[in-house]
Write a protein that binds this DNA or RNA. Structure first.
Length: 154
DNA sequence: GCCAACGTTGGC
DNA sequence: GCCAACGTTGGC
């Protein structure tokens, strides 16, 4: 079992998009950064994922997802009309992968970035040390603290 | 293989 | 809308 955090603009795909189709797996595609892609490839079935809302009015972590399909070739890289088309990808040598995720929990409150920055236990986490990365691992400690801040208890 | 220019992310 | 950070590209 591994723990991850992914970023998305809620206008594109936020926690409510997952909440509104709670049993439907949604492709996490369009990742076009090599470090982020490499983390996507490491995701395992059933891994837990924190969703972060970026570039929006309320920046912060919003809920929890689960991996339902591990890495497969991102079809968008082959679609000419997609903004995620990549001329350097071929069917023989695709460059980019997607995974599928499903809704598991929405936090009782969105935890703002400012709150996360105040946590000493999160000072070393990828979210705060690698500003522009959109897919990243979390330690178990970081993950459970984020869950707790989000109002989820088990 | 270096590194300057360029483009994108994402907070503010 | 600005701009810092930083990943990527391409000339040499």
């Amino acid at each position: 079992m591994q723990y991850w955090l992914v970023k998305s603009e809620p206008d594109e795909c936020g926690i409510d998009d997952f909440l509104h189709s709670p049993k439907t797996s949604i492709p996490w595609d369009g990742v076009r950064n090599f470090q982020a892609r490499n983390f996507l490839k490491q995701m395992g079935l059933g891994d837990a994922v924190i969703l972060y809302h970026s570039s929006c009015r309320h920046i912060g972590i919003s809920g929890q997802l689960q991996v339902t399909r591990t890495a497969y070739d991102d079809p968008l890289q082959f679609q000419l009309d997609s903004p995620y088309f990549d001329a350097k990808s071929t069917l023989e040598r695709p460059r980019w992968v997607a995974v599928d995720m499903v809704y598991t929990h929405k936090f009782t409150t969105l935890v703002p970035l400012a709150t996360l920055k105040l946590q000493p236990a999160l000072s070393e986490c990828y979210l705060l040390t690698h500003k522009r990365l959109s897919v990243m691992p979390l330690t178990f400690t970081e993950f459970t603290l984020m869950q707790k801040l989000g109002g989820l208890t088990h």
